[in-house]
Design a protein around this nucleic acid. Structure first.
Lengths: 106, 106
DNA sequence: ATTTTGAGAAATCAATTGGTTGCGCATATA
DNA sequence: TATATGCGCAACCAATTGATTTCTCAAAAT
């Protein structure tokens, strides 16, 4: 079983959960109210998120508040970095082309 | 069938393919040489990537060169933006706490 | 003390996934 | 022209996924 950030964000419901608990901790029931699906389904998503180490739990009586481990989102950012560099390079190459066009015109 | 960027990057082999064809266009066979799996398996991944509109094809005789549609990566970046804001806010709140601690000491 | 409520766990199910094998077609090469 | 090569496609298979239902347990509310 693959359990990483990329797996965590692959499912749209899970992405919505992530967005919700990024701002404030929420219980499974409170979360389920935001969706068209059962509490159990949400619970399963939360389990996946837990396995991906994307959430922290806070126990309050019989309620469990889930909050996003927001640091984990940086892993995606880090992976994206390589493409940012490539995009920059492409722009620079484009700049060069435009520059050459300009100077040739003169 | 879900077909979006998040689905595309969920699989590690697909992520590796994406990284490879971000720099330069490659044929399925050339790609397959980088992995422990068959040409057909890679071909299926490329089909998924095509369905996600993550690649452009360039036909050269009987060879097909695949290259990353790098603009698509921005969609991930856009989604990540919301968390950047939250992280910033958290830092600012932390700054405030630190500031209050400082001023109280004085 | 009894009932209600919040939540994880297990069993089950259909759909999807990632992979394989075999095929056919078009383009190169002999 | 005959053969080899690159590639997509379909059929098939085991594993995983996302969801539902049922169950149990602990904590609140009555």
């Amino acid at each position: 079983m693959r359990r990483d950030v990329f797996q965590a964000i692959a499912d749209p419901t899970r992405r919505a959960i992530i967005t919700l608990i990024a701002v404030q901790a929420m219980t499974p029931n409170a979360l389920a109210e935001h969706f068209d699906t059962s509490r159990q389904a949400i619970s399963k998503h939360l389990r996946v998120l837990t396995e991906c180490e994307m959430v922290k739990q806070e126990f309050q009586g019989r309620e469990i508040y889930y909050q996003l481990e927001i640091e984990k989102m940086k892993e995606i950012d880090v992976w994206l970095d390589q493409f940012r560099k490539i995009m920059e390079d492409q722009f620079q190459r484009l700049d060069k082309v435009l520059y050459n066009l300009k100077t040739k015109k003169k």
